[in-house]
């Protein structure tokens, strides 16, 4: 990842690319206008001491001075040039990027929840439909259509290096799209204020080759593996009746969908919407004290005993 994972002055996909020149153009116009005005102002004010360095306002005589209306006319005329260019370019760029592609290579349903992202991959064959969370895999080189749903309050879907923001609003479905040119991990972030943990509502877009994508997809469709050791079996039981109130682990009794799907939890790089790097250690930390790590999160502390914790961990690390 680059130095600024959310910076958008370097783009990595078609949609972001086609906006970037316009961004640079307006930024240059903006900078140029500031410099010109600053220079004019500086010179104008610096002329003051030539009045004899008067400190007393009233000692400088009042004069009508020249009319000066030319300043306004000329200024307006010059300003019109970049403004018109920007106007036309804006319309052109808007036409180029706003509409979702008519033949997307992939269509996703993303639902934004306080404070995590639910991602659904639909398929004509229901058994190939699955859900995951906080990590979106896409094939490179094809446009991906994202249907955005608001799960509770308004959030906004944003992957700076691939595409600008589109809000996820309850009661309506907004469309966004993106296309990655290069394989890589691109950070995304909720960008509409949505409560306590708006700050920690990130996600990642993993762009990979068609082949990698296909094998990832095939793996995701699979149900969770069965427990092997007794600890894992105890862990699974616990997960089913403690965590299954909210979470789903496909292939087990844990079937609720009000929280991230855990079926292939360990295949994801981060935990809790980008809050932690995912590894067995941080997993334990999270389950022990989600409220400490992400204050206000919708996942309550579970108050598991040390034994239970290690069983749950043993089971969860199996979910690749």
């Amino acid at each position: 990842m680059s130095l600024a994972p959310l910076g958008y002055l370097d783009a990595a996909g078609r949609r972001a690319h086609s906006i970037l020149p316009l961004t640079w153009f307006t930024l240059s116009v903006a900078t140029a206008v500031c410099i010109v005005i600053a220079a004019l102002l500086w010179i104008a004010v610096r002329r003051a001491p030539k009045n004899g360095g008067a400190l007393e306002t009233r000692s400088v005589p009042v004069e009508r001075g020249s009319n000066g209306i030319n300043w306004i006319t000329v200024g307006l005329l010059i300003s019109c040039v970049p403004l018109l260019v920007t106007l036309v370019w804006t319309m052109a760029a808007l036409a180029a990027v706003s509409g979702p592609p008519s033949h997307p290579g992939l269509t996703l349903d993303v639902t934004a929840h306080q404070w995590w992202w639910e991602v659904r991959y639909d398929a004509t064959n229901p058994s190939e439909t699955f859900a995951t969370a906080n990590e979106i895999h896409i094939p490179v080189g094809v446009p991906v259509l994202v249907r955005l749903h608001g799960g509770d309050v308004i959030h906004s879907f944003w992957v700076p290096k691939l595409s600008g923001k589109t809000d996820a609003i309850p009661g309506q479905t907004n469309l966004s799209w993106m296309q990655a040119d290069q394989p890589g991990r691109y950070r995304g972030q909720c960008s509409e204020y949505c409560g306590f943990q708006h700050a920690n509502m990130a996600f990642e877009v993993v762009a990979e080759s068609q082949a990698d994508f296909a094998s990832w997809r095939a793996a995701e469709v699979q149900p969770a593996p069965d427990p092997i050791t007794p600890a894992q079996a105890r862990g699974q039981a616990l997960v089913q009746y403690r965590c299954g109130l909210c979470h789903q682990v496909r292939g087990t009794g844990a079937g609720a969908i009000s929280a991230p799907d855990l079926t292939h939890l360990m295949s994801r790089r981060t935990l809790a919407a980008g809050r932690l790097l995912n590894n067995p250690g941080s997993l334990i930390g999270w389950i022990q004290d989600p409220q400490g790590i992400k204050p206000g999160t919708q996942m309550p502390n579970q108050y598991l005993s040390a034994q239970q914790l290690s069983d749950v961990q043993a089971y969860l690390v199996l979910l690749r």
Partner: peptide
């Protein structure tokens, strides 16, 4: 400013 005689206050 430019066409006047600014007094710096």
């Amino acid at each position: 400013i430019w066409l006047g005689r600014p007094v710096i206050t």
